[in-house]
Simulated assay, not measured.
Amino acid sequence: MVSEALKYKDVLLWFGNSISMDVPSLEEWKEAEEMMNFLKVFLNVTKTFSTVRRPSSHSYMKEVYSIRSTLLEDDMSFNKTLQILFFDMKIRFANYWESPNLILTLACVFDPRRKLLFVDFCFQDAYGEKTDKYYERMRVVQSSLTIFYDEYERMTYNTERVTSSGSPEVERGTLEKMKFEMRFSQFQFQNRHLRPNKSELDNYLEEPLVVSDEENFDILQWWKRNSDLYPTLAKMARDFLAVSISTIASESAFIVAGRLTNKLRNSMNAETIEALVCSKDWFGSIDSSFN
C-alpha cells in the first residue's frame, strides 16, 4: 500500500493542498519510503519461506543471512522512525541467530550452487576467520552432516540386503551370486573408513559449484538427474528438502479441507476428502505451470 501511494506522492500533495487538507509532509513521505525499503527485505524472505509449490528449506541460510546483513547496517540506526523497531528486531534476531535450526542449515548443503561453502562463508563472515565461535559452529555442522550420511548409508545397505534376500523364487545359482555380492557389499561397508577412496559426500562437496540463476534452477530435477551418481545423498536430499520452513502449507491444507466438509457435506470419508484436496492441488500446479 505504501509503495503504491509513493508513486502518486506529488499528486496527493497537490490535491491535499488544493482542498486545504492535512497531508503528510515531505519529511514524512521520506520516512515512509525508508520504512518500506527496510521492510522489503523481510517481505521477500516471507514470500520465500511461505512458498508451497517448491522446496524452500535450502534457501534458509541465504534468507536468514540477508536479514542479518540488513539489521547490521549502521545507517538504519540513525532513522528516528525506525529506531525503536530496528533495535527491537535486532535483539530478537540476535537471540535467534545464536541457536539456528540445524536441520535447515544442513538442507543448505544440498543446494549444489552453494553446498557447505556457503555455510562456511556465512559463519566466517559473522564470527570472523579462525575464531573459536566459527570453528565450533562449523564443527557442529560438519559432524552432524557426517553422522546423517553414515546413517543413510547404513539404511541404504540394509534396504538392498532385504531386497536381495526377499525373493525366494530366484534360481539357486543366481541367488548364490547375489549372496556373494551382498557379502562383498557388507565387507565394503564395514571397511569404508579404512579405504583411501572418497565417499559420496566427499566427492559431492569437492565438485565445483553448479552455476545457475535463482529463477530457473530446479533443485529437485538436479537431484533426480544425479541420483545415480549420488544415490545416498539423493535420498538425504529428498528428506531434507521436504522439510517445511513455514507452517503455512499445513495450515492451508486444513483450511481447504474445512471448506470441503461442512454441515451440508459431512458424510464423505477420509479417502474422498484426501482425493479432493490432492486433486485441487495438482490441478493448481498444472495451471501455474502453463501460466
Rank of each mutant, 00 (worst) to 15 (best):
Ser3His: 06
Glu4Ala: 10
Lys7Ala: 06
Asp10Met: 02
Val11Leu: 12
Ser20Leu: 14
Ser25Lys: 03
Glu27Ile: 06
Trp29Phe: 09
Glu31Pro: 02
Asn37His: 15
Leu39Pro: 03
Leu39Tyr: 09
Asn44Cys: 12
Val45Gly: 05
Thr48Ser: 14
Val52Arg: 04
Arg53Ala: 06
Pro55Gly: 07
Met61Pro: 01
Met61Val: 15
Val64Trp: 04
Arg68Met: 14
Thr70Trp: 04
Leu72Lys: 12
Ser77Gln: 05
Phe78Glu: 15
Leu85Ala: 08
Asp88Leu: 04
Asn95Tyr: 10
Glu98Pro: 01
Ser99Gly: 03
Asn101Tyr: 07
Asn101Thr: 12
Ala107His: 04
Lys115Glu: 05
Leu116Thr: 10
Val119Gln: 01
Gly128Cys: 04
Asp150Arg: 03
Arg154Asp: 09
Met155Thr: 04
Thr156Asp: 14
Arg161Pro: 02
Thr163Tyr: 05
Glu169Phe: 07
Val170Ile: 07
Glu171Met: 01
Phe180Ile: 09
Arg183Gln: 13
Ser185Lys: 12
Gln188Val: 00
Ser199Arg: 00
Glu200Asn: 01
Asp202Gln: 03
Pro208Cys: 02
Val211Phe: 08
Ser212Leu: 00
Glu214Val: 03
Ile219Leu: 02
Met236Leu: 09
Phe240Asp: 04
Ala242Glu: 09
Ile248Gln: 05
Val256Tyr: 11
Ala257Ser: 11
Ser267Trp: 14
Glu274Gln: 14
Ala275Glu: 10
Val277Tyr: 04
Trp282Leu: 13
Ser285Ala: 09
Phe290Pro: 00
Asn291Gln: 11
